[in-house]
Design a protein around this nucleic acid. Sequence first.
DNA 1: TTGTACGCGTTATCAG
DNA 2: CTGATAACGCGTACAA
Lengths: 360, 360
Amino acid sequence: VERIPGEALPELKARSGGPGSPTVTIYDVAAAAGVAISTVSRVLNGFGNPRPETKERVLRAVKDLGFVPNGAARGLSSRTKATIGLVFVRTLTEGPVERMSLMFADSVIRGAERAAEAQGYSLLLRGVQINEAAEPINILTGKTDGLLLLERVIPERKIAELAKRFPVVTVSGSGGARHAVSVRADNNAGISSVVDHLVEHHHLTRLAFVTGASESPDSKQRANAMVSCAAAHGVSLGPDDVWQGDWTIGRAGQLVNEYLDSRKPLPEALVCANDETAIGVMHALMERGVQVPGDVAVVGFDDIPIARYLRPSLSTVNQPTERLGHVAFDTLIAMLSGATPARQILLPTTFIPRGSCGCG
Amino acid sequence: VERIPGEALPELKARSGGPGSPTVTIYDVAAAAGVAISTVSRVLNGFGNPRPETKERVLRAVKDLGFVPNGAARGLSSRTKATIGLVFVRTLTEGPVERMSLMFADSVIRGAERAAEAQGYSLLLRGVQINEAAEPINILTGKTDGLLLLERVIPERKIAELAKRFPVVTVSGSGGARHAVSVRADNNAGISSVVDHLVEHHHLTRLAFVTGASESPDSKQRANAMVSCAAAHGVSLGPDDVWQGDWTIGRAGQLVNEYLDSRKPLPEALVCANDETAIGVMHALMERGVQVPGDVAVVGFDDIPIARYLRPSLSTVNQPTERLGHVAFDTLIAMLSGATPARQILLPTTFIPRGSCGCG
DNA sequence: TTGTACGCGTTATCAG
DNA sequence: CTGATAACGCGTACAA
């Protein structure tokens, strides 16, 4: 089977069957109001100075007939679809138990949606499996005016290629692609403040880090920051002190259990790439009778809403997730009007000490 | 200022500025392949039996030029936008602390997105404030082929009106609107199994219920079910035993604190309209030294992923949130092809006993 | 100020 | 099997 771009249109069987009254067009409105369609268009879009009476008649007709402009026609004519696509990574697993918890993505989506509304745009949502995103993204190109790419949905090289011909902003991407603007949280500062706190305030020296999914730019940045910040404090993290997680609660628990089974001495603090991982770590630890923060301090990243309600409450790094989406969206819109924003936009992160590290 | 449907188009300033190469159209492809546009269209959409060589040439041109069909033009011509709108309620509060946690909505959205992909459709996301949804919804009507309405975004009456002329499926709505199909979880069965369990297994008789937002159909149904199921067991819930929550952790905690301050004796079990509420309740209770489940049993609703990782783990009613979205979407698509599905589609719920009620 | 007519990029209907 | 060509509904120069 050959690959055909644009994928076949879903076919509608009965045009008569379901609801959907005979579409009312701008012509109907014009007729009802006794004017030309151009007048209707002008009134609706606020151009020119229509005579009050004319305007009145048009608006009345619009209301009477329940006219709503056809977005497709609009888009075709105005060359602006007023729609932005947002692509996020969807995990493969279906199972209820180990379904990846993607609160981060959800939150970013919320922020983008908000911004979209404020700008009069629509948000088109598209989940993809990692490394199978090329075609979907290509198609989205035809339905939108620009694209928001969450995390590393496609290889950097492809992003660069795409961004050359289509407006693209990446959120929490690695930010290496030319032409594409990247918006992300200040991972370095976040991790740095965690390490500072752990070392200086709690005087801990044996630290370990649990990563997120291996391809994730955020995860990589946080891991790197962890290693270098620790080194800056004279604390060294060996390979054994960086545990490969995958963002999920389940995987985190698994890691902890394996470690405990190995009977190696636990580190004094476990810093996690995200809050879900921290939750999994805490849960597994306590399940095995290890006290948090008594025996091991645990710190997360993201500051999801429940973090403060856990027992112990979760020390974590707050990143403005909704704002990430919002800012990314606004940046994309700016690009559409010809602006060339900074290639990287960093949003601040702040460490929130709570119970799981021994504060609070 | 008068209200104008269709809201003005966002204006693009520099058509030259940003990226966006001179759009390649079907004409370009046709020219490059030395065929007519109709041939290109046929090849791409799989109609007719193009000569292999022709097909070959077309596909090569498509690839060479990086042609992607313009969605707007497609929609205009085929009268199918291949897009479904999903409208959800957005809370008013901005604050990071008391931002309502909407994991339920997020999950439904995920399900819908998945279904959309499987059907070759796109998902347009739109958040609205409650009772301010009429206009946004109306506009969406022009950009989509059908609408998914989450929770009670607009009054029942308006839904009925809308559904008469446009395909609509409500998710977790009250389901009273004619023409609109409603997909929701079996709240009655869910609550019923909770009450059965509490009364028969744990022999508790003094129960109370914490509601969600007052306008929410789900919340109402669960509250009603609670009252009648309790009554069926000879346990009566007075007005004082139904606490008015709003789905949020924060509000739940507040309720608990107020109740404790009043020095009234606590009920033996607190059944909550959703998991966030249960989390808030548990947290506040334990903060004040009340043991869960020792002094009070707590049960939630939804079975969000973290439920099982809380301490104590949260007993709750599982509802297939993603499936709600998925099924709703598929139903809508079915309607588009003329089908007339059952007016109500009920998805099963199952009680999951865990630590917070004394099991597990 | 208002109306006429063309273009936007596809799909779909006919002839050839 | 393929090529013209007419919609599709709206925005918009241009003419009146």
